[in-house]
């Protein structure tokens, strides 16, 4: 699962730094903006069958690769 999420993030953020640093702040480093975030939500729904709506999570809940992985783990 973790590997799949990292693949996804790497594709959406267009940067492999997401693999190296699990605690990197994706919004501050401009790796993720509102648009890419939307793509991520769609991808999570399609690949894991987990529906997360855009207003459900705060930006601070999904700002690092590790937090995203933890969120998906908690939901699956």
């Amino acid at each position: 699962m973790e590997e799949k999420v990292l693949d996804l993030l790497e594709e959406i953020c267009e940067d492999d730094v997401v693999r190296e640093d699990g605690d990197i702040n994706l919004f501050e480093e401009e790796l993720l903006d509102s648009l890419a975030f939307t793509e991520l939500l769609v991808a999570i729904e399609e690949q894991f069958g987990i529906i997360i709506s855009p207003s459900e999570v705060e930006r601070t809940d999904v700002e690092t690769p590790n937090k995203i992985i933890a969120l998906i783990r908690a939901r699956s």
């Binding site: 975030f37 939307t38 939500l41 855009p54 207003s55």
Partner: peptide, 9 residues
Amino acid sequence: DFLFSRFMM
């Protein structure tokens, strides 16, 4: 959160 994101999704 309620228009742009949903339209894009």
